[in-house]
Design a protein around this nucleic acid. Structure first.
Lengths: 103, 103
DNA sequence: TTGACAGGCAACCATTTGGTTGCTTAATCT
DNA sequence: AGATTAAGCAACCAAATGGTTGCCTGTCAA
């Protein structure tokens, strides 16, 4: 869980996820073409982190490695975590409002 | 947006948010009592980051500073970001399955 | 008005992070 | 076989992060 949050914390990695959402199953070099301001090794490192977090799953075939989005971990975050805040949203907002108004 | 993701990346900070979700409007020292493995200054720093990200709003009154949860940024993440993945979830999953099965 | 309590500031430290360059391995094409 | 293409490995670097200690400021109550 922590790995997922940490993986999502970097803009470059979110870009990679977005690229995969655009077109799933891309290779390293294809992804590199889209993150032009980084070397291939930089991208490799980020992909590694995404993979460790379970957000990306890879399949090697021949000399290529294809990257696929795994939507499950993000979903778990949405359910377990965001859901809680969603539930308390109105309550939190009104408490905030009251605190700000109170002189 | 990036600030919010980064703020959420740390377990301690998520703990602080949870503590505030438990009881909104706590002071620094009250929050410190719940994060026992950190000094007050450590907690202060984390709260600062949460505040910069807009996740926490503070009100000072007298010598106390009260911390309130602001659910809005998390909600924006949920809508703009999680929503996209949710939408493509099934598609991504089936692509993943196909890639894994293909020999 | 003196003390105690809530919090802020600043300097400092170790570790992690994000990124690089250079070289190697492995598969594919001619 | 030789050249090319896809990816991996390792060492190294600067900057950011997470945390600490020590001291200062402001507020409240006796």
């Amino acid at each position: 869980m922590d790995l997922v949050f940490k993986a999502l914390a970097d803009g470059g990695r979110r870009q990679l996820l977005d690229a995969l959402r655009e077109r799933n199953g891309q290779t390293l070099t294809e992804l590199c073409d889209q993150l032009t301001e980084m070397t291939r090794q930089g991208v490799t490192k980020h992909l590694r982190i995404l993979e460790d977090a379970g957000l990306v799953v890879t399949v090697r075939r021949g000399r290529s490695k294809y990257h696929y989005l795994n939507p499950v971990p993000i979903n778990e975050i949405a359910e377990r975590w965001i859901g809680n805040y969603e539930r308390d949203k109105l309550r939190a907002l009104s408490a905030l409002k009251a605190a700000l108004e109170e002189k």
